[in-house]
Each structure stands twice: as structure tokens, then as C-alpha cells.
Design a protein around this nucleic acid. Structure first.
Length: 112
DNA sequence: ATCCTGACTTGAC
DNA sequence: GGTCAAGCCAGGA
């Protein structure tokens, strides 16, 4: 059934596990999946995530800088920022304020 | 088949 | 501390 690699499904699964008000980085997911050097694939997976039936909170996934790099890839751009702000995350200049405090690590959430 | 690009990360200067 | 360059895998031309 896996049209795409299971890696993609795994990325979606982890992304959906991200609790509201929390954000994570592509590398964090990649590292958890064992693809630390393939953070780009995580981003590519997110591109398909928009077509996935179960909505994937891609807006909770940002780069290691806490910068909303994928903002322009959303259906309506800037939607990402609004969604994050709606969840209580403060964003300034397309960058998450106190990103470290809102950082969510799959390895920690899924218990080591 | 090659070359380039891309929602990234890390190491080095 | 910021900036540059290389590495990474997949997809499109």
C-alpha cells in the first residue's frame, strides 16, 4: 500500500504526534528516523504531506533556525505563521521566538 | 544518462 | 558570532 517509501509515512506519523504549541525541526525527525543527513527528504515528504488524507501539521515543522522556511509552500502563504501564533507560538520576522522553549523532540516525546 | 534544484544540516573559516 | 562550502536523497528537465 505504501506508494511512497515508508520513510514518508513515518515522517507524517511523527509530524502528527507534535503537540499544539510545539514545533520541531526536519533534522530532529530525520535523526529519529535514522536519516539525520537527509533532512531535505523530510522537507520533501512534507511537500507530499499536503496531499495526504490525514492532515499533517507541517506548520509545526520548521528548520533548525526556527525559521519558517516552508511558509511559502503552504496553500495560502503566511498561513503557517498564523497557525503557530494561534497555538501560542510567537513569531517575529518569520522566525519563532524562543524556539528552543517550543522545540519538540520526537525522541523525547516518544520516550527514549 | 547527466545536471540542477530543493520545506535542510553540519563543519570549517 | 556570522558566513561559505560540502553532503545528502529525490525529482524534474
Amino acid at each position: 500500500m505504501p506508494d511512497k517509501s515508508d520513510f514518508f509515512q513515518d515522517v507524517y506519523a511523527v509530524a502528527r504526534l507534535i503537540p499544539p504549541g510545539m514545533v520541531t525541526s526536519y533534522g530532529a525527525i530525520g535523526t529519529y528516523l535514522g536519516a539525520a543527513r537527509s533532512a531535505r527528504m523530510v522537507g520533501w515528504a512534507m511537500n507530499n504531506a499536503q496531499e495526504q488524507a490525514p492532515p499533517v501539521p507541517a506548520h509545526r515543522v520548521v528548520n533548525r533556525n526556527g525559521l519558517l522556511t516552508g511558509k511559502g509552500h503552504f496553500n495560502p502563504p503566511c498561513r503557517m505563521q498564523e497557525l503557530l501564533e494561534k497555538e501560542g507560538i510567537v513569531i517575529e520576522n518569520d522566525q519563532i521566538v524562543d524556539f528552543k522553549a517550543h522545540f519538540w523532540e520526537p525522541q523525547e516525546a516518544l520516550k527514549i
